[in-house]
Design a protein around this nucleic acid. Structure first.
Lengths: 313, 313
DNA sequence: CAAGTGCTTGCTCATATGAGCAATTTCTGG
DNA sequence: CCAGAAATTGCTCATATGAGCAAGCACTTG
């Protein structure tokens, strides 16, 4: 169309202002300006089409909403949250993702939910930020992956304390050196009790570990010999969620499942809502693998990682 | 309201995007998301109210549309156009205002209009930018105020040439030293012919001269003695339009009307649409006086001056 | 000049939307 | 644990809006 003249531009701006900012209806504007409501409608339509009026969706806080929506669509997620973090250091990322996860849990959990958690640094950050929670049960989904002081069961206890309930814990390592030991552990009463809760879990928050590049407390676990580790990486393992290993195609590698003390893949998949919380450059590929695997329904990550993930969707 | 949680924020962003950017109706979004259309409506309402969605009215070109609208409302003008000029020099301002005036004329004039023009630097800039015009008559509204080479009748001729018609010109100075001479000039056949057109003029483009601070070719005219000038300024004259003088209150000062060769105030006021074109810091007060006087219905000015005018409305 | 061609305008009618309301759920403070 | 308060939800009905269309208008083009 012929470029609008100055008069049409100003008139368009006026009408756009009246409609979008003052909130007047087209009919009101028509009455005031003496134009027909159809004319007003067409002017507004053209104003939007030609870019004179733009809609800006602004993050009010530390979230990048537009990126979140893109990420959600790109991987068909139930929820996706891209968090603006001030620095790309692992600590800053963990702290902010944990805080956002805490907010999300406060928001979406109800009394009837049963919350599943892994142990680990990310969930630790979550627990630190958690201020309130409905009265829901908390179930530990996997053994302890790293050094006790960092990843302790204390975290799980704190979350359940906020909720005001008793936690279902797993006093055991995530992985042991042989299947027989694992089997023995699983026969312990306390663990059996916790394992029995897995099927009741409705919402889980899980961390994502990266095997290549290595950024996971499971990979660093002494119970996993360097031989095992190299063999698994050779098998294509890229990421891990609750001791379930996946490759780039999102396929599960079950080689060491029998040595792990954690919710089995089959039960993990039956949890209605699994929220992965992870970020950082190094974990990008791992997160992608987990999303592709379908093990997680939702993701909380940093904005930079969200952009990378969208780019490779 | 309680600050929205991350999930609500992302959901809001998604719905806002679907509605405002993808153009889906609330009912469509309701069907997709499984929420009721009322819920969608309330989410959108809140998104706008809380500032998550903002409407931006952007100037596509060199115009400041929002400022234009404000200016128009502040003085109750028919049209107001605030032009972004790259520099605040008189030359840059004149060139851009003239160009915008030319665009405006191309846009709003029809074959049935009769265009009135003053002579002067501003209208000169207009003529230089003018590319096309309907076949309408062009009438000079006032004598020549400044040096012939700057403000010549050539300008009027050029405009009428673009329109493809014969111009009605005034070969006479804007002001002479005594009333008798002026009366004698007005009896000249050519001038009488032009004066007879004044009542036919439908759209006029006029410059605004400032008397205090002095920025007007009329003030500098030798036919106006320094005594006369001082007396007029003492009488409060602030501005001039087509040799009609006005004070800050917008009242007309008729003291030297009988010495001027120009459309009389009474006839000027009968022109349906008078567009003033003027800008620059020095002319701000003068423009204000003219707008208050009601002699002009519309204004084309630079953005900085528009802001000043709005501030003192 | 005349017929054709495309554009603008305002209509009708079906659909989308908002205001106000009643039912329900969720909080809160005994 | 419960009564009352407050918020939330989805309804009805009136209003606002969009799609499609026919008339009017300007503008070619032979």
């Amino acid at each position: 169309m012929a470029q609008l003249g100055p008069d049409a531009l100003v008139r368009t701006a006026y009408i756009a202002q009246q409609h979008f900012i003052e909130g007047k209806t087209r009919i009101e504007i028509a009455a005031e300006t003496g134009l027909s409501r159809f004319k007003i409608g067409r002017i507004l339509e053209q104003a939007v089409a030609s870019g004179i009026v733009r809609f800006e969706i602004a993050s009010p806080s530390s979230l990048d909403l537009e990126l979140s929506v893109q990420l959600q669509k790109a991987y068909g997620l139930e929820r996706a949250i891209a968090v603006n973090v001030p620095a790309e250091t692992p600590e800053a990322i963990q702290q902010h993702l944990g805080g956002t996860a805490a907010d999300l849990l406060s928001e979406i959990l109800t009394d009837d939910d049963v919350l599943g958690l892994t142990s680990g640094r990310t969930v630790n950050a979550l627990a630190r930020s958690l201020r309130s929670l409905p009265r829901c049960e908390v179930v530990q989904l996997a053994g302890i992956a790293g050094p006790i002081q960092e990843t302790g069961i204390e975290t799980i206890r704190r979350v359940s304390a906020v909720a005001g309930t008793r936690p279902w814990t797993i006093y055991a390592p995530l992985i042991v050196s042989d299947a027989a030991t694992a089997q023995g552990l699983r026969r312990q009463h306390e663990l059996m009790d916790t394992f029995a809760q897995f099927s009741r879990v409705t919402v889980a928050v899980v961390a994502v570990g990266s095997w290549s590049p290595p950024d996971s407390q499971m990979v660093e676990n002494p119970a996993l010999g360097s031989q095992d580790r190299d063999a698994l990486i050779a098998r294509g393992v890229r990421a891990e969620v609750c001791a379930t290993l996946v490759n780039d195609a999102g396929r599960v590698i079950e080689d060491v499942d029998d040595r792990c003390i954690a919710i089995p893949e089959s039960q993990l998949r039956r949890i209605p809502h699994v929220i992965a919380v992870a970020g950082g450059e190094a974990k990008t590929q791992a997160i992608r693998a987990v999303l592709v695997s379908g093990l997680a329904h939702s993701l909380i990550t940093d904005a930079a990682t969200a952009r990378r993930l969208i780019g490779m969707a």
